[in-house]
Design a protein around this nucleic acid. Structure first.
Length: 483
RNA sequence: GAGGUUGUAGCUCAGUUGGUUAGAGCAUCAGAUUGUGGUUCUGAGGGUCGAGGGUUCGAGCCCCUUUAGCCUCCCCA
């Protein structure tokens, strides 16, 4: 017999892990609902054509394709065609509807866009939804990267107001406060990045510049500049990128803060300098980006007035985000605790015209995503999960068999009716064995409904932490367990 | 797509320059203990050493092939 195993890049979640994950999901769900977002779920699989071409060339290769079941190949000629196409499919990345026409969900954004387009006549815009579901990628797994993982998104479509951006920032703040993770929310605008490309006379290199800057945290300033050099930017252009991003950021970080810290109400000097540069060179898009960030932060400041958020927001022009569909304000969340080395635990931004891919033009959206696997790891490291999550049922009834078993079942339902989670040991096994089981499961109380207890209509209650034991009436027993 | 590394009991791992019958801890089961758990103590079961081939008198160990996991880069969450 071969050893059982699970597919590469997938995980089992133990009862304890599921409880912790659900704690995160429930916390987020409550906040989304509080902010007026509606839940949405889409199928695990989509039609392959819905997904292909949406995530770039690399993305297409990472889509998990589902093999057709052969339901359609009734005729002999169809079967022959299938065999022929098979040979093509085996030479990736070719795919054919004859062999595969469905694929597993790759993210939540594209299915959301598809949903909005399909239901555009029923929906009341602006439509705000949240969605928490697993997605699948045929990636090579490594630490913190899986083939099946959960995404947790909140988006608004059909509104260009920057109030939406501010609300999503507020959701981030509220969520990470609730989860007790100190964070830094970084904010920037794609328009500023476009302006930087324009400023150094290489608007065609926008993507290269964006991708390079996005790596700033990982490979550092020198690394970014090197990559720009390799992408063919001139020394002069590189110097300009350097000036607008790192130099301003760095010099002002050490002297006057370019970083805007809402909580401490520091100045926005960095933006002012950028603004002057863009004005002098008449780069409109850059000025737009700066205005959007200012306005977003103005709105957010109002939202934050009564909330007393613990974390801060920083404007950071080295924030780029890899995804290509963002067009406006972009945000990213990193853990601010000095001991935690973890990449971003959340991110998002505005994307104009996402639904245009499916033929519905002119619908702007903005959304954020929570990386719940990483959030889980951070919370585990910081030990900020509530302790009572660990145990399920609070009490266990020992099974003494015979009449006592019947009596135990009666007691069991009485205390459950009172709202106390309890279970009975289902077999009249040796006392020792039952106690050991109770110990391992970590029940707070063990109830002993034996001969004497049954005759008196009572039950012995053993506090499993202190070892103390008393015979009580059922009502007193319930009261004791409820504390 | 490129590279590194590891597969030995249910789990975590030892195993010497190749040498008798492959070990430990944990877990499981049984007993000390038939209404009192955690700590002990005693005993038991459990292995095609990832798979296939080769070298050798002899392979867990050396060589070749293959497969699976983990990790790094690319990319991404």
């Amino acid at each position: 017999m071969s050893k059982p195993s699970i597919p590469q890049g997938t995980r089992d979640f133990s009862p304890e892990e599921v409880r912790k994950r659900q704690y995160i999901l429930n916390t987020l769900k409550n906040i989304f609902e509080l902010y007026g977002f509606q839940p949405l779920e889409t199928p695990s699989m989509e039609n392959l054509v819905t997904l292909t071409g949406k995530y770039g060339e690399e993305g297409d290769r990472l889509i998990f394709k589902i093999l057709n079941n052969g339901l359609h190949e009734k005729k002999e000629e169809d079967k022959n065609k299938l065999n022929a196409e098979w040979n093509n499919v085996l030479s990736r990345p070719y795919s054919s509807p004859v062999v595969t026409e469905r694929a597993l969900r790759y993210d939540l954004t594209i299915p959301f866009a598809r949903y909005v387009v399909m239901h555009q006549n029923e929906l009341a815009f602006p439509f705000r939804r949240y969605q928490m579901q697993p997605v699948w990628r045929a990636d090579r797994p490594q630490k913190g990267r899986y083939r099946e993982f959960w995404q947790c998104d909140a988006d608004v479509v059909g509104s260009t107001s920057l109030i939406n951006e501010a609300e999503l920032l507020s959701i981030y703040m509220e969520a990470f406060d609730k989860l007790k993770i100190p964070v830094k929310v970084k904010i920037n605008s794609r328009k500023i990045l476009s302006a930087i490309a324009e400023y150094c006379g290489a608007p065609d290199k926008l993507v290269d510049i964006t991708v390079a800057i996005d790596k700033a945290d990982k490979i550092g300033q020198v690394g970014v500049l090197n990559e720009l050099y390799q992408k063919g930017l001139s020394d002069d252009q590189i110097a300009k990128v350097n000036y607008l991003t790192f130099f301003i950021r760095e010099s002002i970080l050490t002297q006057t803060p370019i970083i805007t810290d809402i909580a401490e109400n520091k100045s926005q000097n960095g933006l002012d300098i950028l603004e002057q540069e863009f004005e002098r060179n008449n780069i409109k898009i850059g000025l737009e980006g700066i205005n959007e960030i200012r306005k977003t932060i103005d709105y957010f400041t109002v939202l934050a007035e009564r909330k007393n958020f613990k974390s801060s927001i920083e404007i950071d022009m080295t924030l780029a985000r890899g995804l290509s569909y963002y067009t406006g304000v972009i945000v990213e969340v990193v853990c601010a605790h000095p001991d935690v080395k973890m990449g971003s635990i959340g991110g998002g931004g505005r994307y104009d015209d996402l639904t245009g891919l499916f033929g519905l033009k002119g619908l702007s959206g903005v959304g954020v995503s929570f990386g719940i696997d990483r959030i889980y790891d951070v919370m585990d490291e910081l030990k900020v999960f509530p302790e009572q999550l660990a145990v399920g049922a609070k009490a266990m009834l020992v099974n003494f068999g015979g009449d006592n078993e019947t009596y135990a079942l009666q007691v069991l339902q009485q205390i459950r009716v009172a709202g106390v989670a309890a279970e009975i040991y289902p077999d009249a096994a040796k006392f020792d064995k039952q106690m050991k089981y109770a110990n391992k499961r970590g029940f707070a109380y063990v109830l002993l409904p034996g001969d004497e207890e049954r005759q008196k209509g009572m039950v012995s209650v053993k506090n499993f932490t202190t070892g103390e034991q008393k015979m009580l009436t059922i009502a007193d027993c319930i009261a004791a367990i409820k504390g």
